[in-house]
Amino acid sequence: MKARIRKIVTVLDETHSELGRPVSPPIKRAAAVAVIANPFAGQYQDDLSELIDIGEELGDLLGRHALAALGIAGDAVQGYGKAAAVGEDGELEHAAAILHPKLGAPLRKLLGKAPALIPSSKKRGSLGVVLDVPLGHKAAAYVRSHFDGMEVRIPDAPRAGEIVVAVALTSGGRPLPRVGGLTHAEAKGEDGLR
């Protein structure tokens, strides 16, 4: 394991009703979040391949954690997203190195057919910074019912030399979707878009 992990936090929320209307079955959303040392804190490093490899490790590790929290099979996951927050001695590009080149492939491997872009967000911040992880449908990015966001926050991270990395998986879309657009049932899942 290349990543020096301080802690892993998993969060599960289950929505059973919204404004008094039942949500059946309940929508489950899980986020697995790792707090890792930033190997390049406080220095400019041109070659970010170490962080890229860490991203690959975390795609698998955090995907497994989130899946275990959801308690469903990988095939049954419908939505996903990812995000990272870099502590103050790091660079936004460090988050990009973790998230974009290699994190997706091992994550998708856990989830069956998942050709859609994994929506992402990133920021630099201090301890307790809030990450809003964007969510989209795993097979077809245009499925409107699954556009969502999940907030994650760890009170004691990231310290200046750390990076917080989050992967979120869901069992469905918003609790009571009714603004039209492409639906889960209609999605073909061939090009990752529709």
Binding site: K7, I8, V9, T10, V11, L12, D13, E14, T15, H16, S17, E18, P26, A69
Partner: peptide, 9 residues
């Protein structure tokens, strides 16, 4: 309305 579970390792 909802449940939430958080576990830190």
């Amino acid at each position: 309305r909802k449940y939430a579970v958080t576990v830190e390792e």
